[in-house]
Design a protein around this nucleic acid. Structure first.
Lengths: 131, 131
DNA sequence: CGTTACATTTACGTTAACGTCAAGCACCGT
DNA sequence: ACGGTGCTTGACGTTAACGTAAATGTAACG
């Protein structure tokens, strides 16, 4: 049963991140690779955590938020108050994202209108130039 | 015909920004209020520009982008190459925003699913506690 | 043994958009 | 003259998530 650990470089290729990023995450206690002498070896567990970290980032969570979520998640998935906090954090974040989406929609709409106006002006330039 | 200039404090209240922000914008050449002695007085033109600035921010433009857009806009709305650059910048930004919205949609979808799972687990806790 | 390739730690640098003092005019009413 | 209020300029501080450089280590290749 090979544990199949990865070097930092292999991790970087597999997840498209830089070494600096992995070391930074370790310093922030988001990852905890084992050591072979002085070198880091990333286990299956580290890879799982990194996947969750990257997903969290896509959600727009800060690394600090993610750390708390991860800690709560696996320090005890069976601890209700902690799970509840995780849940609330996620809900709050979802609300933010929904609001952000709404604003983005408005902004896209407005900008689209602006663009149409701009295009009209440019079109008039082209007509003038054609004389 | 009252030019109706505003003090910095009045501007802040009207637009919900801080004095620091207005001075910062001036230092970045986004605004250019006149002086009465040593004090700033914001004219109608400044108010119009500030409105555009705040709108640009809602669009997600950086202040530097906004400065360029404003300069191009009123340095000569009749200069075609500059107007074209403005237009291109806006189009690029719109593309970014659209992409961002797509990602946000995906993230919202995923997070919603996660929340449903979390809720299910919490529900099982409540059933256990009810025994 | 020398070089190449990859690894490590330490620590300062970067970016945007302001926040937060500090020190000091300028005028107003008393 | 004095206290209060509002304004001014300077200049350093803040935040997140790394980038980047320096100095060093170590393992294998030829």
């Amino acid at each position: 049963m090979p544990t199949e650990t990865l070097t930092i470089r292999q991790m970087c290729e597999r997840f498209d991140v830089t070494p600096r990023t992995l070391r930074f995450y370790e310093s922030k206690e988001l990852l905890s690779p084992v050591r072979e002498g002085t070198r880091r070896l990333f286990t299956r567990k580290d890879r799982a955590r990194l996947r969750l970290i990257l997903r969290g980032k896509r959600f727009g969570f800060s690394l600090e938020d993610i750390r708390q979520l991860l800690d709560m998640y696996d320090s005890h998935g069976s601890n209700e108050p902690q799970l509840l906090r995780t849940y609330d954090l996620a809900r709050a974040r979802l609300a933010q994202m929904t609001a952000q989406r709404a604003e983005l929609d408005v902004a896209i709409g407005e900008l689209t209108i602006q663009l149409a106006e701009g295009e009209a002006i440019l079109a008039s330039f082209r007509r003038t130039a054609a004389e």
